[in-house]
Design a protein around this nucleic acid. Sequence first.
DNA 1: ACCCGCCACGCATCG
DNA 2: TCTACGGTTG
DNA 3: CGATGCGTGGCGCAACCGTAG
Length: 567
Amino acid sequence: MQQNVLPADYYLTNFRQLTDFVVSRYAHLLGEDALAFYQALTSLPDDAQKLYVRMLLRKGQYFRRSKLGYDEITSVDAALNVLAEAGFVTVDAPAPDVALVKLFTKAELVACFADASLKPLSRAELDESLLQRPIREVCDQLLAFAQRQDGEQLIQLCRGEHFVVFRLLFFGNLHQDMTDFVLRDLGLSRYESYPLDADSAALQTPDQVAAHLLYYDYCEQAENIDDHCAADITCMLRSLVSELMTATKSDSVLRRRVHRLLLKYARQLERLQATQAALEIYQQVDRPPSRERQARLMAEQHRFVEALALCEQILQDSTNEEEQEFAEAFAARCLKKAARSGCDTSNLMASHALQRARLNLAKYTPPTELLALSGADTSVEECVAAHFRSHGACFFVENTLMNAVFGLALWEVIFAPVKGAFYHPFQIGPADLYEDFASNRQGLLQRFWQEISDSDSLSAKVLATFRTKSGIANPFVHWPALDEALLTLALARIPYAHWEAVLKRMLLDIRHHRSGFPDLIWFPDSGGYELLEVKAPGDKVQQNQRRWMAYFDRHHIPHRLVNVQWL
DNA sequence: ACCCGCCACGCATCG
DNA sequence: TCTACGGTTG
DNA sequence: CGATGCGTGGCGCAACCGTAG
Ligand SMILES: [Mn+2]
Ligand SMILES: [Mn+2]
């Protein structure tokens, strides 16, 4: 892959692109101080802006002058003077902050504090021991130590917190950053070009922005928290709930993010045996696997009636297949345990949902073959593929093939300019991909199925898109795993009705139906095709894999489970 | 598309 | 001296 | 025993540098 050469001030250009974009579209969402920050910074000479942005893009807010070696800046010292004058940095006047310690090496710290007892400590222990001392004194000594070195200065970057707001408004999240610009400009990633209409924005109101910023504050807090202190975690989560839960009512994106965070840390509370706290947090979340976790915790405490009530609720209203299957199986087990422990189960047995669950327990068993192979140095899947290649072509595809055909066939639908779906240039897909993708595109999909109504039109569409969009990011297309020969063969051998069935199930629930496809696709010399899921001894079919195979069975899509036995 | 989603693997537990 | 890692760079 | 649940590891741009051990 060719690598483009970037201009020396590429980072300033990128910074300006981002901030200009935000100011021109979202000025009404920027606070007064953020806007003032932008105006003050952009009125400085280029060199000062360059240095400021260089520091802004590095970690932390403290820097040693000796580590600011930027050849493209005519005079770093002059730039620093300008920045200091304008209040964008301080020089040799750092706030007392433990982060300053990170600017110095072990050897320097030992010398700085002239304390030989520090020497045998590891870096982590050294940091820890300095943390015990008064911060003020430590920082004074560090500053004095730095100043004793020729030309050294301690720079503190100021007002950097405003850039976070710009990033949030630009990307709609804080996990993307300026590297997206660089990777694109280097030619390492390519994005589809979709219109960014004036009215599409990730965030709409100042309150929403504030809530998101608060959420990311909590994320940061969570990352720095002691993972095995249940009390600390509980305390943080309670505070998050009280400050953020109301904001999630009207903001589905924030809701999703907050729920994820709560689920993750409630699970951690479980590991720490903090059952009550975990339950308390789970009760704030109404998405899977919250009720499953609650039911498990209830059953663990022999509160079978409550566990069963949760299962019953799931059976009645959950649209999540995995959660449904859990409730069916778990309810059956709980009923047994409840009966055995002498609970009165007569009320429970009257529940329709629970009765249905007890009948519904049969799991689909795919056609199965036992294959004896002698071990090799490659993966099981490759061994089995090699075996099947003696009677045809065989590829190790897992999700990549079906997903690729989905992504290529539906390319225009995926990137259609639906309102609110695209709001910055670095999206690999629409914002609502995993939410209401199909219902927000009913007309487009209807026209798609009219246009793509047979094998020829599907093949033509997929192969044409494969060529014209090659290399462009798409949430379903993993370009390196794809080659035209495989695609051509698959399109020729797999009947239209099968493709239609697969794509339609994917469309029903993209998030949960984009995975679980079998390992291999085999094209026998005699024609046709078959999907093969390989299992080594000790491995077993996963739930999402089984659901796909059950669906294959209903649609007469040829598939098989290949259990390997090592010779 | 948030130290993840996706897959396989290895271990402990339990009817 | 060598290696592992995190931070910085384009 | 098989079934189940839990935790794990690899894979994510690549080259370079300084620091820690
Ligand atoms: Mn697999
Ligand atoms: Mn497999």
